[in-house]
Design a protein around this nucleic acid. Structure first.
Lengths: 339, 339
DNA sequence: AACTAATTTGTAATCGATTACATTGATGGA
DNA sequence: TCCATCAATGTAATCGATTACAAATTAGTT
């Protein structure tokens, strides 16, 4: 491995000058710069990054902590992060937390040891105080998390208003007995989506009915099981708003299993707009999160923190969109929608 | 940041001894070891990893190059890699190549500069000679690639025999006009899956019909479009074997679009067994790749290379499995299968 | 006890790029 | 011409852990 001193010798300058050519070219004469660049070319010199990282104690690497990379929502966000990171010369270290809080702590330690320059956590399980504490000392950005009026940089959609919108859509279609299958309620996201549902129902003057509420785990299986329970009740719902597309698929398959037609006999709305939602039968009506864009934005914010720029806002709320497809039965009720 | 010399001073020993306690505890007296550990505890000392990496010129990091992390197949493999890596103290750097060959070159450069200890490439686009060249000098493992009798460590299923099995399954169900929608044919995987199809057809004595062959891109959309073309022919197929589940979903939706019933009028078999295949309507009959296991195995092999252990075999062929669900219509033809 | 061999610990060089500070040289004004 | 100022370059310390080698200590043998 040729090193900087080899280049310096060949070019007839000091290592300091070589280093300057590489990092602050404007402080070097055009003439010497050329000599050095020629030497670099000739020797095919490439700087030893480990030495550089050590000396400058920075790594050009960020850590992304994901509950589970197999989940398409997270995979897409990671895709956005990766693209933006690569564009700016950063590398992405990936860590599956498996939803274990200890693993999240481990990742934080990793950053404290300065093995990475900063980190992005998706749907963290750590409590707000801990996160705030970390955020004060280290560059961290959260995504898919929602913390009211916090000092921690967060990228998210507005989970309350979006699920309110989804629920209202079902209300507009004439439904009154709308069930909600939430995510696990220890998660803030789940709570906010639940809240949006309740607000929409309340505004329409429909009394809250606990029989129509079920806690799922964002998974297909949980959506399936909870739906069977909902359908087995004396007064089953005519519509279901599920807090994730995967669960919505579970809802639909459970209905099919019971011989109930979607959307004719049961309208379904999901959340996330994952890729397979459009392919599913019937295609899912859902709230689209700009997953790729969220990843990109999170990385942009992190870079701003690296550069010491102040973040004009801490909460970056990206736009969501209600995508109307067939699972909600809107096509059957054009009359109701346009009044 | 407290450093090793601080610990040494407090414990009344030299930094060399502290270093030994950390890395070769067996060469140090029980007594001094305790002193040092106490000092470490007291100062809450954590070694500076950047310094260590620099000095030892190793990083405990591996690079995983993925064509696209959003693809569930790759995401699952990465999941397996990550788990095994974490278990062995390695970190995973993720890079999307976006299927661009230049990006793959860039990743190789990254390894050559020793910024990572080794790398795993999923479905590489680089040609075999280049890969062989790299493999001779650096620790690299390929996954989801298939190179006949090569010296490069590879983890894969047997794509030929598995698609032969899939095709035979359709033949056993009585089909003769079986179409194949392949992946892009520049990819070796696609070629092998195509080969398996041809072999099965040939063994059954069915003449090869180019009208039943279509080249797709592994995507839903390509499966959909190619199916429409297949169905528009004078003698459309009665069955389709698609080289990926996503394409198989495209096949089914295209059939539905044309009012053709699956599996009654068109039997479909896919490949990969992605998560959503089981949820799809009808659930896909498909070849299951042990995606998680492939990632795990790839990482195990890489670690063996790090440790200088010789790899007993270069090609690790993991078992695949034909998962029979509804899309192939096997249920309708129990009589044929069990004769 | 005397000596060798083996074990434990210490000293100091080392990895290679960066950068504070020193030096040299050039430019310009009086 | 002489001195002050500024730009360009060089010298050498530095980052912190590791490790080759040296020194010191202990154990083992006769």
């Amino acid at each position: 491995m040729t090193k900087m001193s080899d280049v310096a010798k060949l070019a007839g300058v000091s290592t300091a000058t070589v280093s300057r050519v590489l990092r602050n070219p404007e402080t070097v004469t055009k003439n010497t710069k050329e000599k050095v660049l020629e030497a670099i070319e000739e020797l095919k010199y490439q700087p030893n990054m480990l030495a550089r990282h050590f000396r400058r104690s920075e790594t050009n690497t960020i850590l992304v902590v994901v509950p589970n990379i197999i989940n398409t929502v997270f995979a897409e966000i990671v895709g956005g992060i990766e693209e933006e990171a690569a564009k700016n010369g950063y590398r992405v270290l990936l860590r599956n937390s498996n939803n274990e809080i200890d693993s999240e702590y481990g990742s934080v330690e990793h950053m404290k040891q300065r093995q990475v320059d900063g980190m992005i956590m998706l749907s963290p399980k750590l409590d707000e105080d801990t996160l705030l504490d970390i955020s004060e000392k280290y560059p961290i950005v959260l995504a898919t998390a929602h913390l009211d009026g916090t000092k921690i940089p967060v990228v998210s959609i507005d989970n309350v208003s979006s699920s309110k919108k989804a629920t209202k859509h079902l209300l507009d279609l004439g439904h009154k007995r709308i069930a909600h299958i939430s995510g696990p309620l220890y998660s803030l996201i789940s709570k906010y989506r639940f809240k949006g549902y309740r607000e929409a129902m309340k505004e329409k003057g429909i009394e809250f009915d606990t029989n129509l509420i079920r806690e799922g785990e964002f998974t297909f299986e949980s959506g399936y099981e909870q739906t069977l329970k909902l359908l087995d009740q004396k007064f089953p719902p005519t519509a279901v708003f599920a807090a994730s597309d995967e669960m919505a698929m579970g809802v639909i398959n459970a209905a099919k299993h019971r011989g109930i037609k979607v959307p004719e006999e049961l309208a379904v709305v999901g959340f996330d707009n994952i890729k397979f939602s459009a392919i599913f039968d019937p295609p899912l009506t859902t709230i689209a999160q700009p997953k790729y864009g969220m990843g990109k934005r999170a990385m942009e914010m992190l870079i701003k923190r690296f550069n010491g720029e102040s973040l004009d806002q801490m909460e970056h709320t990206l736009p969501d969109e209600l995508i109307i497809r067939q699972s909600c039965g809107a096509e059957l009720r054009q009359d109701l929608l346009h009044n």
